[in-house]
Amino acid sequence: MSLDRRAVMAELVRDAGDTLVVAGLGSTAYDLGAAGDRAENFYLWGAMGGAAMIGLGLALAQPSRRVLVATGDGEALMGMGALATIAACGAPNLAIAVLDNGRFGETGGQASHTGRGTDLCAVAAGCGWRATARARTMAEVAALRPRLRAEALFAVIAISPEEVERFLPPRDGTWLARRLRAALGIAPD
């Protein structure tokens, strides 16, 4: 049994409230958009490997808000050092969820490192993350949701590598950034 990525993302961001959500480039950004666009969502269309650190900067700047980084295994692998940086820094209001299909889905479905044995939960634990979790069923994903809103949690969710229909969220970064800042009540510079 293999989880549908759209159903997983919909569950992760269900009743998101004022949680700030950063999605890594590619399918996770499409998944987040498909789950319902909101001003508190920030979609990456590039800057591969940067999602977690954008989440850290945001979490440090907004300590009273929850920040969720949702990204894919390829994006997380490219920014793997960020797991050490975030653990060393500490950010109690930041959680990361990796939707892991073991593939580079955007480029032809080549097997990624997680599809060849790399265990991102073990990497995060080795980097100093105290809370890590895995989910393989929708019940486990549902159990992750409140934890991702409350803990400094690193979670890996095994999803199906099956391709789903593309959903393209807004890709004007200038607009997305200012929309998010406005939602946070930040005045223009």
Partner: peptide, 19 residues
């Protein structure tokens, strides 16, 4: 924030500004 690679600092700056 000590970084493992400089690219992290660019992304962190983006997140900081968003916040």
């Amino acid at each position: 924030v000590v970084l493992t690679t400089e690219a992290e600092g660019v992304a962190m700056a983006a997140g900081a500004w968003l916040g």
